[in-house]
Design a protein around this nucleic acid. Structure first.
Length: 607
DNA sequence: AAAAAAG
């Protein structure tokens, strides 16, 4: 019963820190102010753009100041939309783009760029009173970083050292990014140098910005492309692929912020949504296309999109994109359509975990690439308390109920903290959701059998706190940034430790503590070893019974030969990489840039 | 074996 008590406490604490669930905000962000005196907390950069005050970002000297830049408030034009090298005209059949020189407030027509920062103010203000999360950049100093490859460009320490262009710099300020994160410090100079990149890094640490900034900047500086004239076919210059629709939407939203008033047009295309609207967006011109593979293939086969002019290719969650299910599709897009070869385009792959086999596949897409692994001090994982409980299948529901009751009992302000429950199957998700609702716990569910509308509605309803419990399959495991998730429950454990890592990474974000509870039973014995190792490395309490399980079970794919390590080592440095060995992860024992304290599976909350 | 991704 002691464990039960500690659960309740943990859940309550986690809940207490996460009660700031807004009533209607879809994008909750944290204060970018100084620490409240607590222990240093890591705040992902994309969560830092919460205004410090009601005032808009300080205008720069480059243009006349305006008190606000929201649409409908008149023709503010303080961001230099045309800044020297950016004189791109509307190609792709869209006519002239009119963002820069708009005249008045009446022209909210098709060429009016909606301010992606505009809608945040009201909701953000409400949160600024409740939260005071600090950004601890000192923690970065200790982060182990490994680079390999020829002539690796040196990292930078500030955005000022990088010449990204004035419009982009302005957006960086609007996002309240003060200083580049480690992955940005390394990846941006590498990308600006035109090099291909394979990077291990977490989404939450500014990964999206790390590949967006150089791409946007490169497009702005690059020559205005002479695109082939082909009716109804568009020729994007950059392609960003991701494994789920929601993640593509998220990347699109981020990229829109970064490219605001740069003249660079970002369009998203994914399945499950009416294609006609996406086609219309494309026809209005596209520089950066964010897409999921299926819809993109559709567009390519209809010849509505051509990859002929692609200069930049970015794969997010690259290890997922190249796993068994996705690989043929990705290969088709990258190798069998009209995309320029690796030596002509610039390719960037990002993922938290890079299994050796995936690295091998990925290297087909790259030319003389640089491998980058940005580690993280162990303390970051301390933000997530991991618990494992032995629960038989038949007891799972009542066990979950106990957890939820404890959370509810301890919830402050009557506001239930957000709980994300992962299950193995879509059917299981529906059935658990139904059961929870029947038992008085407002829940919703997200999985691949639901319509896209239902999926998006579920996510909104969860984020807003209307249904503070979200039952999800692995569709929600990767990359999604859902603020205020206090508790991740692995109702069914995944078969792959990497999936576990991605799942628990949905909590413990934005410097908040998070709790991750896993239900373990005989069905999960193959995961025992890797789970125990992972928890051990993250300084978590490993139950004795789990250690016993780990000792006697062999976990197939999850086993890490040679003691295993976090999969962030360049497989090219492995002398055995061309022998076709069966190692899942590249690797020897701590042979690389990571010291001893950074061993197996410390990937933890990485995306 | 399941999930995701086109319709």
């Amino acid at each position: 019963m002691t464990t039960r008590t500690s659960w309740a406490d943990l859940a309550a604490n986690s809940a207490a820190e996460n009660v700031g669930v807004g009533s209607s905000s879809d994008s909750i962000k944290v204060a970018g102010s100084t620490s409240g005196g607590g222990r240093p907390a890591y705040v992902p950069p994309h969560l830092r753009n919460r205004p410090l005050s009601v005032d808009p970002p300080a205008p720069t000297s480059s243009g006349p100041a305006s008190s606000n830049d929201r649409p409908g408030q008149g023709g503010s034009s303080w961001a230099a939309a045309r800044n020297g090298y950016n004189n791109r005209s509307g190609y792709g059949g869209s006519g002239v783009r009119g963002w820069g020189g708009r005249s008045g407030g009446w022209d909210r027509g098709r060429d009016r760029e909606v301010n992606p920062f505009g809608n945040d103010d009201d909701t953000e203000q409400a949160f600024s009173e409740q939260e005071n999360i600090g950004i601890n950049f000192d923690a970065y100093e200790d982060i182990p970083v490994e680079t390999s490859g020829d002539n690796v460009p040196p990292p930078v320490n500030t955005f000022a050292e990088i010449d990204l262009g004035e419009a982009l710099n302005l957006n960086i300020r609007r996002c309240k990014y003060v200083k580049p994160t480690p992955v940005q410090r390394y990846a941006i100079p590498i990308s600006l140098a035109g090099r291909d990149l394979m990077a291990c890094a977490q989404t939450g640490s500014g990964k999206t910005a790390a590949f967006c900034f150089p791409i946007i900047s490169g497009i702005m500086r690059g020559p205005v492309p002479q695109k082939p004239l082909r009716a109804r076919t568009v020729f994007p210059l950059a392609l960003m692929l991701s494994p789920t629709r929601e993640l593509s939407m998220q990347i699109h939203e981020e990229a829109r912020k970064f490219s605001y008033q740069t003249g660079v047009k970002v369009v998203v295309a994914y399945g499950g949504a009416p294609i006609n609207q996406q086609l219309r967006e494309l026809e209005r011109g596209v520089d950066i296309l964010v897409a999921t593979p299926g819809r993109l293939v559709d567009l390519l086969e209809r010849a509505r999109v051509s990859l002929h002019m692609i200069r930049y290719l970015a794969l997010d969650e690259a290890d997922r994109m190249l796993d068994m299910g996705f690989e043929p599709q990705i290969r088709k897009i990258v190798e069998q359509m009209d995309m320029p070869p690796p030596s002509v385009r610039q390719t960037m792959l990002f993922s938290a975990t890079f299994p050796r086999e995936i690295q091998r596949l990925a290297s087909d897409f790259l030319a003389n690439y640089i491998f980058l692994a940005v580690g993280r001090v162990g303390s970051s994982t301390d933000l997530i308390v991991q618990r494992v409980e032995f629960v038989q299948e038949s007891d799972k529901r009542s066990h979950l109920m106990d957890l939820l009751h404890a959370q509810r009992a301890n919830a402050s302000q009557g506001k239930q903290a957000l709980t994300l429950v992962f299950v193995e199957t879509k059917k299981g998700a529906d059935s658990l959701e139904y059961w929870l609702c029947m038992n008085g716990f407002p829940a919703t569910t997200i999985h691949g059998d639901r319509s896209q509308q239902e999926r998006e509605q579920a996510l909104r309803s969860f984020k807003s706190g209307a249904t503070p419990i979200l039952v999800a399959t692995d569709v929600a495991a990767r990359g999604l940034d859902i603020p205020h998730v206090a508790h991740v429950v692995n109702f069914d454990l995944p078969n792959d430790i990497d999936d576990y890592v991605h799942r628990i990474g949905r909590t413990g974000r934005a410097g908040k503590t998070g709790l991750a509870t896993a239900f373990f039973n005989d069905n999960n014995s193959s995961l025992a070893k890797s789970l125990a190792d992972l928890m051990q490395e993250a300084n978590q309490e490993v139950p004795a019974w789990l250690t016993r399980y780990a000792a006697r079970s062999f976990g197939g794919r999850n086993r890490r030969p040679g003691g295993g390590r976090f999969g962030s080592r360049d497989f090219r440095r492995d002398s055995s990489f061309n022998r076709g060995g069966s190692d899942y992860y590249g690797g020897g024992n701590n042979a690389g840039g990571y010291g001893g304290g950074y061993g197996a599976n410390v990937a933890s909350s990485w995306d």
